[in-house]
């Protein structure tokens, strides 16, 4: 479990990023328990009874896997997806999975502000939400190198011509046949933000600190040189 895609992802089930604190997990769980409670105001007319109980079960399973730090650590280790676009599921897989599990369709907003809103009690203490790799057992090597299983995997990160703009990124991504939905699934960044990123809609993008995280994840997904990509893109945002 955990490796096959979004539906079984416990973080997604709770609408959280992998960097969520224990406290956030606790609160998200309590909130979602209320959301899917029998006869709950906000869901009784949207979900059939069996769908609601399924949703409850998913949320509970996620909570049980994540609330205990030891189990969570084990889950995180197991969960880390093989990175790199080559191993990404094809667009059809993604669509199929998403369709089979509506709850995840819009995953990044699942419980709404998975994204830029500092939702934690202390905004400043919040980790950059979209970075899905604070796994306690993180290996020393960079993810896109370390966890690759395929020999054809790229070890040398790619460089794009500077300045790196939204459209450059988009073209590069499209050439590689990677969809935004896939990146979104992998990074927990909303498709909407990825679109803004690629459209150079700087004013619609979140605060710099988050944007930086978004860019890094995006670059990583495509096997791009993270630092150069981030720096080059941001230099234009800043100016």
């Amino acid at each position: 479990m955990g490796l096959s895609g979004p539906p079984s992802d416990h973080y997604e089930a709770l609408g959280l990023g992998p960097g969520a604190t224990q406290d956030e997990i606790e609160r998200a769980f309590r909130f979602l328990e209320g959301l899917y409670a029998e006869g709950a105001l906000a869901t009784y007319s949207l979900l059939e009874p069996d769908e609601a109980s399924e949703a409850r079960a998913r949320v509970r399973a996620a909570y049980e896997a994540l609330a205990d730090p030891v189990r969570r650590q084990a889950y995180d280790a197991e969960r880390r997806p093989p990175a790199g676009p080559e191993t990404a599921p094809g667009p059809d897989d993604v669509a199929g999975v998403a369709a089979a599990a509506p709850a995840v369709e819009d995953a990044p907003q699942a419980i709404p502000p998975a994204l830029p809103v500092p939702a934690g009690p202390v905004a400043g203490a919040l980790p950059e939400p979209p970075v899905p790799r604070p796994a306690p057992a993180a290996p020393a090597a960079p993810l896109h190198v370390a966890s690759h299983a395929h020999p054809r995997d790229r070890v040398v990160p790619l460089l794009l011509p500077e300045p790196v703009t939204g459209p450059t990124l988009r073209r590069f991504r499209e050439e590689r046949g990677v969809t935004l939905a896939e990146i979104s699934t992998r990074t927990k960044i909303g498709v909407r933000f990825l679109e803004y990123l690629e459209a150079d809609r700087h004013s619609d993008l979140p605060a710099l600190v988050y944007l930086k995280g978004f860019l890094a994840e995006y670059a990583r997904c495509l096997g791009l040189d993270v630092k150069r990509t981030v720096d080059s893109y941001l230099s234009r945002v800043r100016s």
Binding site: L32, L35, T43, L46, L47, P102, E105, D106, A110, P112
Partner: peptide, 8 residues
């Protein structure tokens, strides 16, 4: 949350 999760 319901809108995001179940209506998209």
């Amino acid at each position: 949350a319901a809108c995001a999760r179940h209506l998209g």
